[in-house]
Amino acid sequence: MLIKCPWCGDRALQEFSYQGDATVARPPEPADPADANWDDEWYQFVYLRDDPKGWHDEVWHHIQGCRKHFKARRHTVTHVIADTAPMSEELKGGDK
């Protein structure tokens, strides 16, 4: 599998470390820290995943290269990568 690092271009899989689902986001702190919903949001953030069979937005780390994190939209059945982008940018492509 070749992965296109947004800064270094196509590089071999061995240079990268997988960092998981890019769609989960750390819950914002509520006004009241005792807010019970916050527990539930943290539970969902830490443990629950969509685990799609198809296009998956995920975080990769070019740990043996430029050491930058970036996002990739990869298909979990074909392993085809439709797009990669810096963390601050949106992913395009796939049928997502």
Binding site: G20, D21, Q44, Y47, L48, R49, D50, D51, K53, T76
Partner: peptide, 18 residues
């Protein structure tokens, strides 16, 4: 390996990845 997919039919998200 397909638990997430089957339980999606029941409207559930599971604490796992495939």
């Amino acid at each position: 390996g397909h638990s997430s997919q089957v339980f999606q039919m029941a409207g559930m998200r599971l604490p796992m990845e495939t």
